[in-house]
Write a protein that binds this DNA or RNA. Structure first.
Length: 472
DNA sequence: TCTGGGGTCCTAGGACCC
DNA sequence: TCTGGGGTCCTAGGACCC
């Protein structure tokens, strides 16, 4: 999908079409997830600090990501892909490999091109968004082709032309070659794919290590026989938070770790998994980052067990000086929770002993570790981009807020660009809403009234908004 | 007003085992 | 009566991807 998050926002918000849109973290430490093509003209790029993007393009719309919407759109695109072949390997919400051979498509240029063009039309029709297609005899080549096709295009790499095509390209073109690898290769005088192939496998292994070196050599020759693999089980689950201001208070650091542990376990359980290794991540004020991990005797999905392990690991880390980021993860995932009482009891006893030691040695702070308070996640009200519904004016989205006011633009994916109104932040007529489908609304020719279904948040059916509604 | 969040894979050293 | 060899597991860090 082309500039996926930004394109989805433009489809949802008619007033943003044709304008620079930046989706990402909008706080002081945010980074850009996706910039619309209009914003890229100003030099805004993915992974750039949002503060820098604002300097480059002050007039863009800056929006928080709305993953609920992106997941919905993604699912409808993946459905189109699964209609082409049973072998579909999603790489992210907006990208996937499809094995057309397994779908019975003849391995002929004309046939695959027709399938690709048809797919692009279907994606546009179903989602209202454009996608690009790369077609080739291997995953790596298909990926390079799709990059070359962007935006809104299709590229076929004919078998036999791979080396000729790749040769002059910079090594960074090859998937798996990032800044560090490119720098290592540059120092060895290797800049292009052709030079990579000429260097030979032994030299690349010497420079980059066994796996990376031989893998890169194969790719430089256009060789890639990795199969398309559907259904890959997740191997780890993790959550992390960067704080707007570095944390210095030990107690606060601990309560944040406990919340993260709870969030991590909630995701783990939602996936019906359990895990054996708990890991914490700490990023310091100076951006130095470390991890600490502990492997339990058996897999768990018990929040208390994960909390205790996380706090135990935290005790081994020096956080004086300030903590910028904290994370908690679980790996070594098992498909179900093992009912191994011995392992569970042993782990818990271990934890208690450790906690007792911590209490004895650490003074009053340690008390907090034993009686962790349930977290009241403070909801951030009226974030830019948030869907809202007003009793009188209908569906819209938050354009901005501050000094007790919130500015809302009232428009829907299928309306004309809407107008802006400002309310006091606690206006009872205004409440959070659900993302509206990009397609399937009333067409422009019919009555402008908003369908009842489009304000589903009102009946409490929308789970994501339940918490927000109850706060009123 | 520098640098997100969620992942995967690889490497390397030490412990441990046969 | 100087120090084998191979395999697996665990931990920590790093590169890379979207």
């Amino acid at each position: 999908m082309d500039a996926f998050y930004a394109a989805a926002e433009q489809a949802a918000k008619p007033s943003l079409r044709g304008k620079p849109v930046v989706v990402g973290g909008i706080g002081p430490r945010g980074v850009v997830a996706t910039a619309s093509y209009e914003a890229r003209v100003f030099g805004v790029r993915s992974a750039m600090p949002t503060a820098q993007a604002r300097r480059l393009c002050p007039n863009a719309a800056y929006l928080n990501p709305r993953f609920t919407l992106y997941r919905q759109v993604s699912e409808s695109v993946m459905e189109l892909l699964r209609a082409l072949s049973p072998l579909v390997e999603p790489l992210s919400l907006d990208e996937a490999f499809v094995d057309l051979e397994a779908g019975g498509v003849p391995a002929e240029t004309a046939a695959v091109r027709a399938v690709g063009e048809r797919l692009r039309r279907d994606i546009l029709e179903v989602t209202g968004l454009t996608g690009s297609v790369g077609l080739a005899g291997a995953k790596m080549l298909a990926k390079i082709a799709s990059e070359a096709a962007k935006p809104d295009g299709l590229v076929v790499i004919e078998p036999g032309t791979e080396r000729e095509l790749l040769g002059p390209m910079p090594v960074r073109t090859l998937p798996g070659v990032g800044p560090a690898t490119a720098e290592t290769l540059r120092r060895a005088g290797i800049h292009t794919v052709a030079e990579t192939a000429e260097a030979g496998e032994a030299e690349l292994v010497r420079l980059l290590g066994k796996a990376h070196g031989s893998g890169l050599y194969a790719m430089a020759l256009g060789r890639d026989d990795r199969p398309v693999v559907a259904e890959r089980d997740a191997k780890s689950v993790s959550v992390e938070d960067t704080f707007e201001v570095d944390l210095t208070d030990r107690t606060r650091v601990r309560t944040e770790v406990l919340r993260l542990a709870d969030r991590c376990v909630a995701r783990l359980r939602a996936a019906g998994r359990s895990g054996r290794t708990v890991v914490i991540k700490v990023r310091n004020y100076d951006f130095s980052t470390l991890t600490r991990s502990e492997t339990l005797r058996g897999p768990t999905d018990d929040p208390a067990v994960v909390r205790e392990a996380a706090v135990r690991l935290l005790e081994t880390v020096d956080t004086t000086g300030g903590v910028r980021l904290l994370g908690v993860g679980v790996s070594g995932l098992a498909d179900f929770t093992q009912e191994d009482l011995f392992a569970q009891i042993a782990t818990e006893r271990e934890a208690e002993e450790q906690a007792a030691v911590a209490v004895a040695g650490a003074g009053p702070d340690a008390e907090a570790a034993r009686e962790p308070e349930p977290e009241p996640e403070p909801p951030r009200r009226w974030q830019p981009g948030l869907d809202v519904v007003h009793e009188e004016f209908g569906a819209g989205w938050v354009q901005g807020s501050g000094v007790g006011r919130v500015t809302v633009r009232f428009e829907t994916p299928w309306s004309a660009p809407g107008r802006v109104r400002t309310f006091v932040v606690d206006d009872p007529a205004l409440r959070p809403g659900e993302p509206l489908p990009l397609r399937g609304g009333p067409d422009q020719s019919s009555a402008p009234a908003i369908r009842p279904k489009s304000v589903s948040g009102a009946d409490g059916a929308g789970s994501a908004s339940g918490e927000e509604i109850s706060r009123r």
